Simulated assay, not measured.
Amino acid sequence: MAVVPPKDSVIACFQPVIDSFRLAVAGHEVLGRERLESGELKSLGPLFGGCEDGEALRQLDRHIRYQALQQFLAAGQPGYLAINVTPAWMLDFKKDDPIPTIEMVRELGVDPRKIVVEFVESAGENANMQYLIQRYREVGMRIAIDDFGSGQSHIDRLLALEPDIIKLDMDLFQRAARGGLPAKVVLGISDIARRSGSTLLCEGVETEEALQFALDCGARYLQGFFFSQAAPTLASNDLAENCLKDVLPRYLNSKKAHYQSRQKYNDILLAYFQQLQTLLSKSESHSGINHNISPELLPEPPAGFIRFFICADNGNQISPNFEFTPAQGWQSNPENLGCNWASRPYFYSLLAGCDRGPITSTPYHDVDSAVSCVTFGCRLDESRLLFMDKVLWES
C-alpha cells in the first residue's frame, strides 16, 4: 500500500499552459511533488490512485493547494491557476459547509476569477456535485474537465459540468497525433468543444509533430514537456514565444504547401466533374431512371474518383452508382437506387441555390470504399442533380 509522505517533504510544482493564440503562458496546473533525499522531485500522481488512507491524502492535497495559492499570489497572479479536485472527496459536503478551495482563496486574497477547478474523475451523476460546481461558479471560478475522452462517462461529464475548458485525455491525444481513427475521434471532440463554447486544452504535447496536430485540432491551450516539465516556480511569460517562434512558421509553411497540393488535386477532379455534368446534362431520362449512360461514352476518371450518381429534386437516387477501377473499367451498381439523400446538408444546400458553383460536402467516411471522402454536387437540369464522391486529400 502506498504511504502518504510527510508534509514537509512535499512541495507544489507548476506546469505551464501555453496560449497558442496569444503566444503567452495562459496559466499553470498545480502538481504535487515529493522531494527525495537526493533532491530529485518525485510525482505524487501514483499516490492518488493507490493510497487507502483517504483522509491523510486529502489533508496532503490541501497542503499542496495552499502552498500553490501562496506562490501564485506572491508571483502577482499571472494567468490562471488550475487546481485538481477529486469529486469523491466531496460527497460528504452539506449545503452550507465551507468549501476548502474557496476558503483558501478568500483567506489569501487570491482573485477567484483566476482559479480553474479541474475535475479529475467522472462527475455529474449526483446532485451534490452540481451544487458544488454552482458554489465554485458563484465566486467566479471556472470549471475544467480533465482526461476528457478517457472513459465512457465523458459525455455525461460534459453535460453536467458545462466546462469552460475541456482538457483532452493525454493518452488519447498522443495516439491521435499518430493518425488513424484516434485522430478522427479527437477532431470530433474539438468540434464538440467549439460548439459547446469550451476551450480545448491538449495535454501531453511532447514533440513538434504532436504540437502541429494540436494546432490542427484548433486547441488554444497546450501543455506538455515540449514546453516545460512541472517546476517549483511559475514559468516566465516569454516561454511561449521562445518555444513557438520557430515552430509556427514551419507549421504555416507546411499547411500552405498541403493546401496548395490539395487545391491542385481538387481542380483536377472538379474539371472531371464538370466534364461529366456537360455530358450527362444532354442525356435523357426515362420514368425518372437514367438508362442512357453508356460506359464507352464516359471518360476515364482521374485518381481519387470513387463514383457518381444522379438524384431527383426530392432526394431520391434515380440512377445506379457508376464506379470505375482500372482493372474492371466502369461498373454500374444499382444497390442505392431509390435511396433518399434529402437529409444530407450538401443536398438541401444545392437545392436552395446557396452555392453558384458545384457544392462540396464536409468530409465523411465512406463505408463501401473504406476511405474518407467528400461529395461534389451540381444541377443537371430542372429536375435532376449530379453528385460525385471523391477521396479526401489527406497526404
Rank of each mutant, 00 (worst) to 15 (best):
C311M: 10
L60R: 00
E103V: 09
E121D: 10
G140V: 14
E203V: 15
A370E: 13
I189D: 02
G79D: 06
H258D: 10
G304N: 04
A176T: 00
S395E: 09
Q277S: 11
S196E: 09
A240D: 12
R379V: 10
L298C: 03
L158W: 01
L270G: 04
S319E: 03
Q263P: 13
E206V: 15
T325K: 09
G353M: 07
D92G: 15
D246C: 06
A82Y: 12
R137V: 05
V139Q: 10
L248V: 12
G180N: 02
G124A: 01
T233A: 07
V391H: 05
Q152W: 00
L201M: 07
F72W: 06
A177Y: 03
G357H: 03
Y265C: 13
L69M: 08
I166D: 00
P249N: 12
L385Q: 14
D267T: 04
M388D: 13
L73S: 11
R194Y: 11
L158M: 03
F14N: 15
A193L: 01
N126P: 02
L36R: 06
V120D: 07
F48C: 03
S9A: 10
L168W: 05
M1R: 07
G204I: 12
Y259M: 14
V10S: 06
I166T: 00
W89R: 13
R65A: 04
L211M: 14
N266R: 03
N314H: 05
L69H: 05
Q15I: 03
L270I: 02
R356G: 10
H28K: 03
I155E: 00
R344T: 10
S383P: 02
L108Q: 11
G109M: 14
G32V: 14
Q15P: 00
Q275N: 06
A123H: 05
E300Q: 06
E118N: 09
R142H: 14
R65C: 08
S283V: 14
P163H: 06
G50W: 04
R35A: 14
N126E: 09
K114Y: 08
L57T: 04
P295L: 04
C339I: 15
V4Q: 02
V110E: 02
Y221I: 04
G288F: 09
E162W: 12
Q71Y: 08
D8N: 04
I359F: 08
A26G: 07
I18M: 05
L41G: 13
D53L: 10
D389H: 01
L298D: 01
K42M: 02
Y346A: 05
R344N: 12
L181F: 11
L385N: 07
R22C: 01
Q130S: 13
N340C: 03
P78H: 11
Q317D: 00
P363H: 10
A160Q: 02
F305R: 01
I83W: 15
G329P: 00
G32M: 13
Q212T: 14
G197W: 10
A210V: 11
L23V: 11
Q260P: 13
G304W: 06
A144N: 01
L187N: 06
D61W: 13
L386G: 04
P358M: 07
W341Y: 09
S38E: 09
D61N: 15
I83D: 07
E34K: 07
A82F: 03
F322K: 06
K390S: 08
E382P: 02
S198P: 00
L234D: 12
L211D: 11
